[in-house]
Amino acid sequence: MSKLKVYNYSFQNLSQKQMSFESVFEHIVHFMKQDPNGNYRLMFGTDSQVHSYYTKFITGIVIQRESKGAWACIRKIVVPRKMTNLHERISYETTLTEEVVSMFTEERKNQLIDIVLPNIYKGASFTIEGHIDIGSGQRNRTRIFVNEMVARMESLGIEPKIKPDSFVASCYANRYTK
């Protein structure tokens, strides 16, 4: 498998284009500070689509306040060839998710945890999830990669989610791969 170099650290959503990672992080902090008593899920996931001459990868970042909305953005990467090998594509999706997760250093994660920490006993919570666009169902072609990709998410210290629970990859990111 060839090594792919990725230089695009620009994020976007429906209201903003060309956001830096710092700007994304500030949006997440601001969203969480609006309700420090909330139950938060910081979720990451990547999906891809093979087109005629290229393969488009979309990584989604979603901060959800359960039952009270969300803020989200995407990062788009285009590989200038058709990536038809399923294992290569799933592995690269996972790599792109890992790359964005790694931007959330221990210091940054602690900054987010510190927002809800004083309210833990009032029911506040914060979890980090890695959504992988694979499923373990008997008819799912990606089931043979589940253990490998789940282990990669766990090695980052985040909770892995696969279909049908991996909606950031299989729904949110998927919408932008077309």
Results as ranks from 00 to 15, higher is better:
E98Q: 13
E98C: 06
Y121P: 00
D47I: 01
M149T: 06
E66K: 12
W71Y: 11
Y53A: 12
Q64F: 04
L14K: 14
D35C: 11
E93C: 01
E98S: 14
S48V: 05
H51N: 13
L96Y: 02
E22Y: 08
R65C: 12
T142Q: 02
S15G: 09
T127Q: 09
H51V: 04
P118M: 04
K76T: 13
K122I: 01
S170W: 00
L117Q: 13
I77Q: 13
E106S: 14
A169M: 07
S52F: 10
L117P: 00
K33D: 07
G38W: 05
I144N: 04
Q49L: 12
R89W: 01
F25P: 05
A72K: 10
E88H: 08
T105L: 06
G38E: 07
D35R: 11
N140I: 01
E66F: 11
Y176T: 02
Y121E: 14
C171L: 11
E106N: 15
H131S: 04
G137W: 03
K178D: 10
N13G: 06
N119F: 13
R175V: 14
F44W: 05
E148H: 07
S52M: 10
I144H: 06
G157L: 06
H51T: 03
E66C: 05
F167A: 03
I63F: 05
